[in-house]
């Protein structure tokens, strides 16, 4: 039986969809059978991030309403045999599905897949409740900003109230240069505030924009540091112990080299 993992954040725009796409693709690259489920009904995006938007025939609502069989709605990824997407409906709203329908759907999917990864919509309303209904495990994505951390804290409280204990934290878009000069909260600050276990840290990376433009998850880009961070997260989900990537190394720009040369930096 597979594991159902929901990717949440509370606040929009912190990288839930990017995280879902990359973790899922990362797990598929490690040979796992994975299905990504977009529950952001009315605002679907996982299809474009994955580059599969032209192949949608049926969607999540068609499945729950019985307009098609589950198999027919699953879109097979072009890169990996074991990777599938169940897209959200674009023309309906979040009340088109309810929590028990989602629970049934997750139960059917977990029989066939090693991982069912659910992309949760922003907010704490019906869409959130649907997304977490069938999940065994929750990931909370946040960025090092006051607003995102506050919402993450609220989501953690709601997850625990819904019996999704021990959610794991992903800190996204961290900027080592800003952390260094004390203008951005660091990893310890955020763990201290949110008091949950860290699953991974993803540095800010321009390649994310490029990879989204292309519809190719950045986890497949061997050069990208964000890609490396997502590859590590995928391995950790499989129980492997992988150390955090050294964020400092990427910060060594010209200015720092100069500072080191002039002796202002140890």
């Amino acid at each position: 039986m597979g594991e159902v993992v929901v990717v949440t954040s509370g606040k929009g725009g912190v990288g839930k969809t990017t995280t879902t796409a990359n973790i899922g693709t990362g797990l598929a690259a490690l040979g796992k059978k994975v299905v990504l489920v977009d529950t952001d009904i009315g605002l679907r995006n996982l299809d474009v991030v994955m580059g599969l938007e032209n192949r949608i025939v049926y969607d999540l609502v068609d499945v729950t309403k019985g307009n098609c069989r589950l198999r027919q709605a699953l879109i097979k990824d072009k890169r990996f045999d074991g990777l599938f997407l169940l897209p959200a409906a674009q023309t309906k709203d979040k009340t088109a599905v309810n929590a028990s329908e989602m629970q049934n759907l997750c139960e059917s999917l977990q029989e066939e897949f090693d991982f069912v990864i659910i992309d949760c919509p922003a907010g704490i309303e019906q869409g959130f409740k649907n997304a977490i209904a069938g999940a065994h495990k929750a990931l909370v994505v946040t960025t090092p900003e006051v607003s995102a951390v506050r919402d993450a804290d609220r989501i953690i409280g709601l997850l625990e109230a819904n019996n999704l204990r021990d959610p794991k934290l992903i800190i996204n878009r961290i900027r080592p240069d800003m952390v260094k000069r004390g203008d951005m909260m660091n990893i310890e600050d955020m763990i201290d505030i949110l008091a949950i276990e860290l699953l991974g840290v993803v540095p800010e990376d321009e390649q994310i924009v490029v990879s989204t433009n292309r519809g190719e998850p950045v986890v497949l880009d061997i050069q990208s540091r964000a890609g490396q961070a997502f590859r590590n997260i995928a391995k950790r989900l499989l129980g492997e112990e992988v150390p955090l990537i050294n964020l400092e190394r990427y910060e060594e720009g010209l200015v720092n080299k100069l500072k080191r040369f002039l002796g202002f930096k140890e």
């Binding site: 900003e145 006051v146 506050r150 804290d153 000069r181 004390g182 909260m185 600050d189 505030i193």
Partner: peptide, 23 residues
Amino acid sequence: LGKEKTGSKNLAKERLRLVLVHD
């Protein structure tokens, strides 16, 4: 040269600490 460690992150952390007590 970035030796000064009085960045805005301490302010962010302090504000978060207070708002989360209520939340």
